[in-house]
Simulated scan of single mutants.
Amino acid sequence: MKRLFILATPFLFVGIRAHAETIDCKNASDQATLNQCADLDYQAADKKLNETYSKLLKKVSPQGKPRLQRAERAWVAYRDAQCEFQTSSPTSYSAQPMIHLYCLSRLTEAQTKLLDEQLHCAEGDIGCGQQ
């Protein structure tokens, strides 16, 4: 059953994005809309993360690039596992997708902040990674 949900999810999100302009997330009152709004929040957070990561990847030294890539892959695995753990339940419930997406958003925003700090660190800052 879980596998079917994962396969169906991309199709759901395509529909969500297509109708994003009609969703009033500030006044959402039903769970389906709340789930859609959580997806929109996550998509925005993920987009910003990818933009920040791409900028940092261009900036780091040749020696730092594979380390950054390895760290980011490890972070994605951590984020996914952490959110899976936080939202796991013996039975599914209607708010589960929303809670899972908010977890993804929260951790993604925190990682974006960390990468942005690396992107804008002062020259000579030895705690700033492979700049």
Score class of each variant (00 low, 15 high):
I16G: 04
R17W: 04
P10F: 05
L107N: 00
L119F: 06
Q69V: 12
V60S: 00
G129Y: 02
G64D: 01
K65D: 01
R3L: 15
K113P: 00
V14M: 05
L49N: 02
L49I: 04
Y53W: 08
K26Q: 15
R70T: 13
A20Q: 07
L68R: 05
G15L: 06
D30R: 08
L119K: 02
S89T: 06
D116L: 00
P10A: 00
C128S: 03
Q63H: 13
F11G: 08
P66N: 05
S105M: 08
T22Y: 01
N50L: 08
Q111G: 12
E84A: 11
Q43V: 12
H120T: 09
L4F: 13
P97I: 08
E117A: 13
P10T: 02
A74K: 04
T9D: 13
V60E: 06
G15D: 01
A81D: 11
R3D: 14
Q86N: 07
E123N: 10
V14G: 02
N50Y: 07
D39L: 12
I99A: 10
Q69M: 10
A71Y: 08
Q111V: 06
R70L: 10
K55C: 02
H120Q: 06
E51K: 11
A32H: 14
A18L: 11
A74F: 09
G129P: 06
Y78I: 09
Q63R: 14
T52D: 02
T112Y: 03
L12D: 09
L115C: 03
A110E: 05
R3K: 15
L4D: 14
Y42L: 06
E51R: 08
T9N: 15
Q118F: 15
S61V: 09
I126G: 15
A110H: 13
E84G: 14
K47C: 10
G127Q: 15
K55A: 03
A81W: 01
A74I: 06
V76H: 07
F11I: 05
Q111L: 03
A95H: 08
P62C: 03
F13Q: 07
E123W: 12
